[in-house]
């Protein structure tokens, strides 16, 4: 086993946050059923969270002892802007999914993300967006009947019209 010999920027803070979260969860687990009985609904949560607290302490102590890794910066190596931007894009997608519907939000997301990451111009991005969206829509909505959020596009009405039209004309 090769143990790490230095810590990365932000690692100390992360491990500290983990410890705080573990303590909070331990307190929450205690609140379920206190130490009432071995078979209560709080038994396993208590066991799990106490192990979390102990191991979080061990990890934190180990991390404090290590020297900071040289030449590594949080903003460049751990959380570069590109990650932040993509996370924000995904967040937007998820927020808009229900209000404006799957088709529109996914199209916007794919188009922006591909233009930004692939950098081959907007025509290529648009083409790729349409092809991949059509594939995903066919597989999920049409074959496996997953009802994706419809939002502002009345998909079911459009499909009913298309199928009516087909049955009327053929």
């Amino acid at each position: 086993m090769n143990h790490p010999t230095s810590r990365r920027p932000g690692e100390l803070l992360f491990n500290l946050l983990v410890l705080i979260a573990s303590l909070f969860l331990f307190w929450q687990a205690y609140a379920i059923a206190q130490f009432s009985s071995l078979s209560s609904s709080g038994a396993l949560p208590l066991a799990a969270t106490s192990i979390m607290v102990i191991s979080a302490c061990l990890v934190l102590i180990k991390t404090i002892r290590l020297p900071l890794e040289p030449h590594v910066r949080f903003i460049r190596h751990i959380f570069p802007p590109i990650i932040g931007i993509v996370m924000a894009l995904i967040l937007m997608f998820a927020v808009m999914l229900e209000p404006i519907g799957f088709i529109l939000s996914a199209a916007i997301f794919l188009f922006i993300a591909m233009t930004f990451l692939h950098r081959k111009g907007w025509v290529v991005s648009l083409g790729l967006t349409l092809v991949s969206l059509a594939l995903v829509y066919c597989v999920f909505r049409l074959i496996f009947k997953v009802i994706l959020p419809e939002g502002i596009i009345p998909e079911r009405e459009i499909m009913a019209v298309i199928s009516h039209w087909f049955s009327a004309n053929f």
């Binding site: 997608f93 998820a94 999914l97 229900e98 997301f109 692939h118 991949s132 995903v136 997953v146 959020p149």
Partner: peptide
């Protein structure tokens, strides 16, 4: 990667949604 990664995100989101049809 510029094409694959957005599609992975899309698939993950649709996949998670279809587990129980819930956001």
């Amino acid at each position: 990667k510029g094409v694959l990664i957005p599609i992975i995100f899309l698939l993950s989101i649709v996949g998670a949604y279809s587990i129980n049809n819930a956001i």
